[in-house]
Design a protein around this nucleic acid. Structure first.
Lengths: 118, 118
DNA sequence: CCAATTGTTCAATAACTTTTGAACTAAGGA
DNA sequence: TCCTTAGTTCAAAAGTTATTGAACAATTGG
């Protein structure tokens, strides 16, 4: 069983920008990038919204060509389509992820990154 | 007379991405980048939409911090806020403009770039 | 002053997006 | 088989965005 994904050359720049213009989806992509190589399932993102809402955002990321979703049993394993994005839009993903990393206003997955003083 | 602009540190990544996710606005920015240094007025963009519609899109670009608009007589002179954007999001604007340059589906300002054979 | 030029504002509309809960499907383990 | 886990689908509600035309304002040249 495979879900529909656009081919690399079907990925459109305005679509990618619009889809990453949503803070929840940007947070998802940032987290995927921080765990590159490790496929994550939908459950890992529950900090960012309800199950239903994540289903919506993750479908959007897949349909735009930003992520790849593999069905394994009852899980979906989600990865960033970094090669395709880099080939299509060199430097774009890196600069977005770097900028997102500085952005304290973005929601985060996992511990809320509290700055601990010595 | 000056119009309201966000300061550099008020420019938000999700906002920039969402605003550039619109093909008309991406075309405006691409054209501004191609004429860097030369301030353009709204009339130069009439290929991309009606006067009213451009007013809307150009206001959005200004409010997001992507462009600067200077009022001179009855004209608005519009420039890209490249320094601010580069400082805030290094590499982002360049990769977007480069990618937009390859995108034949985007609307264009001026002659439709016909490939002339020798 | 008068008219033309430049661009804005307003209200209306159409279309899309995000979010929600309830109901559902499909796989896996006891 | 039955229950749990993982995630989707659907319809509804709420909100946002893009586009339009008509009316408006401000500057400038004659």
């Amino acid at each position: 069983m495979t879900l529909p994904h656009p081919t690399a050359d079907q990925i459109s720049l305005p679509n990618v920008l619009a889809v990453l213009g949503d803070p929840t989806r940007l947070a998802i992509v940032r987290y995927l990038a921080s765990k590159e190589g490790v496929p994550l399932n939908c459950g890992q993102f529950l900090d960012l919204g309800s199950k239903t809402n994540l289903s919506y955002h993750l479908a959007k990321l897949r349909e735009t060509g930003i992520t790849r979703t593999e069905v394994v049993g009852t899980s979906r394993l989600i990865t960033l389509r970094r090669d395709d994005l880099d080939r299509r839009f060199p430097g774009l993903l890196d600069s977005i992820i770097a900028a997102a990393g500085e952005d304290t206003a973005l929601p985060t997955v996992g511990a809320p990154e509290i700055e601990v003083r010595a």
